[in-house]
Amino acid sequence: MNTQTTIAGITFKNPVMTASGTFGSGMEYEEFVDLNRLGAVVTKGVANVPWPGNPTPRVAEVYGGMLNAIGLQNPGIDVFMERDIPFLKKYDTKIIVNVCGKSVEDYVDVVERLGDEPSVSMLEINVSCPNVKEGAIAFGQKADALYNITSELKKHAKQPIIMKLSPNVTDITEMAKAAEAAGADALSLINTITGMKIDIHRRKFAIANKTGGMSGPAIKPIAVRMVYQVAQAVKIPIIGMGGIATAEDAIEFILAGASAVSVGAMNFVDPYTTIKVVEGIEDYMRTYHVENLTDLIGAVE
């Protein structure tokens, strides 16, 4: 049985990754999860300088999921290179760094810094965070803007780049095609879906930012649909995510066309979710006599 999967020439021991922003750089989950067993750790977004993020409350629970508007609080690339990268290098897992910025120059800055770090396998470009007003999402909701930033980053990146797509668009396949045309090596989807919750007793927004990104099991059918649509529209590989709680969920994404999957909000609900998904995929492959995980990619009929 071979659980390996390959994206842009990088081979992962299994298709299970962590969705950016739900796992830090792995330190907070080291006590729960043997990081060696993950296909990759996808880090929390990192910018060229520290970002303080949004006011609190930043999170709220909704039916079958949650809203967040953290606002990409992060320590900046200097601390990240000194602390987080050496931590992750101790483990036998691939490192994918999520990169955020407010301008093209910000992204380029981080991408170039990471280019000197061979332990980083891939870069995931966050052009789809719904909670940051400047930049970020502005690059991810218009096909021409996405094309431009993707092609610009490809000029500077030493590692393959994954463009992380927003579901908050009219037609996600248009965005996927623009990223592919600009040279993106892979796509990841979906980022969170913009939502809102109102506390009726206090007549106030549940989170200070008013809107937040929805994640959790309630969004999974939307995510599976978008992964399928994008898989039909482009040839580059897809990392699928959105509400994955179990191996069955992960396999749905793979059958829909994802080459790998990420566990996001469910890390908060059960810190052992990633490992359970790894083991459950193996069980599924045994049960259905699947020799290679790659045989499952896009195999829905």
């Binding site: 739900t22 929390k44 609080q73 810190p271």
Partner: peptide
């Protein structure tokens, strides 16, 4: 959300 320092909520 997480209770363990990861989500920054």
């Amino acid at each position: 959300a997480c209770g363990v320092g990861a989500c920054l909520g």
